[in-house]
Write a protein that binds this DNA or RNA. Structure first.
Lengths: 252, 252
DNA sequence: TCCGATTTGTACGTATGTATT
DNA sequence: AAATACATACGTACAAATCGG
């Protein structure tokens, strides 16, 4: 059976140009100059049309990797290259921990198969009394608890419910994709700050977190048909996981 | 004297098309269908070329307002329209409070003109012993404290330092623009969760916050030349200000 | 002050490819 | 298999901002 697990290789021209430009940017000596060659020069060097280069530069500008000044040129934004943990796009927890400079580990703490919870069922667009599947995992950074994560699914999404070991060793995104045919495309998160004691009713795992407050992400994950397929409640110890975000500002 | 305060009116074709499309989307009955007309139809209706429509749709897709399915059509993402407080782009605090359904108020709490703080001077790309200007403001939502905000500037950015009243009644962005010629274009934020007692050394204002933990944004604001012009330390009571964010997911 | 040269910004027309129905 | 609809790419043209002479 072929699973086609890897992200499909993109070979559109813009993607190639984007990769090539990013390689160029990373090799630049930014302390000397942050100016990129002109669009025309880039286009000629890469053997593509200017409009293609222009689109790529537009994308990179929206990602704040570069900024353009009309009539002057295109410049690298050095800030963007320093960021290790970006809020956007979503990243795997293991990656988050690794990129913040620690060794990641997971422990599955609990698993429930017949939870009834109308509030969460509603977020998943299910009937209020639909049975839910819930997992609780703790992610460690160098033995220290760094992320606490609850995932909720409709019990019916999986024809056969994955085992404890599968949940522990595999990301929920992968399981949803491979075992339920649901590919997560987007998520919507809502952010809150919580003090440890506020979370004790939820789980006693928080007692092991070496901090006083946690960053809470209330997340709904949507699949390829824009249907909610997973609800997540994630708590980050911001001493380990410190999200960064570059924003454009339109304030006057 | 003409201040030219208002955001310059955009009248590029893509902006018009975007506004027109957004109006169309907001008037749609999404419970019936979320499908938009085809690119060609939109182009013909608006009297523009298909490529222009395509670019606008691409922008809206990146903002998660719509999503497109190859060969099938373009669809509205109803989630995006429900979001009141988005993390992206940056918004004025008054707006944040208003959009979360409360009446906003500000109080200037403190102002210091000759602060020496090497750590913050470094973030502002200043000499370690450069004198800093600091303001402390509290924003209220219906009389309840909702946001605590410290702003740091180089004392030298303002030829004449704005008065207490000006700082209280005007946004720092406006003052920087009008009194220092620095237009804020981007910011970089780093997020942490803090328990109230951790913040007491900073200010006793936190005692009045009716919550146990605050969401901290550590923010550097960059001007039109990509130079840091303001450093901000902002604390949000997430019972009032609840940021939402739509993300694309590339997890496998 | 003005005038070109350079560079980005915007828009159109056209063509081809690919997925869905 | 055909029609429809999105995806990508090229060439061209002109506008607007910046900079140096």
């Amino acid at each position: 059976m072929e699973t086609d697990m890897l992200p499909t290789i993109r070979h559109s021209l813009t993607d190639n140009v984007k990769d090539e430009l990013m390689r160029y940017i990373r090799r630049m000596d930014l302390s000397e100059s942050t100016k990129l060659p002109s669009e025309l020069t880039i286009a000629q060097n890469l053997g593509v049309s200017r409009i293609t280069v222009c689109r790529v530069l537009g994308d990179l500008e929206q990602e704040n990797v570069i900024f353009r000044i009309h009539g002057k040129g295109t410049f690298v934004n050095p800030e963007a290259l320093q960021i290790k943990i970006s809020l956007n796009p979503a990243q795997e927890f293991h990656q988050l921990i690794e990129r913040s400079g620690h060794r990641p580990q997971v422990k599955m703490v609990r698993m429930e198969q017949d939870l009834i919870c109308p509030g969460i069922a509603k977020k998943l667009a299910l009937a209020p009394d639909a049975p839910l599947l819930r997992t609780e995992k703790v992610y460690y950074a160098d033995e220290e608890p760094a992320i606490l994560c609850f995932n909720y699914f409709s019990r019916a999404v999986f024809a056969e419910i994955p085992s404890w070991e599968e949940f522990e060793n595999t990301s929920a995104f992968f399981l949803l994709r491979e075992r339920a045919g649901r590919v997560m495309m987007r998520d919507r998160i809502e952010m809150e700050a919580k003090e440890i004691s506020e979370l004790l009713p939820l789980t006693d795992q928080v007692k092991h977190f070496n901090c006083k407050a946690l960053l809470q992400f209330d997340t709904i994950n949507y699949d390829q048909n824009n249907q909610p397929a997973m609800y997540g409640l994630c708590y980050y110890n911001t001493n380990f996981i410190r999200f960064n975000l570059l924003r454009n500002q339109n304030i006057y």
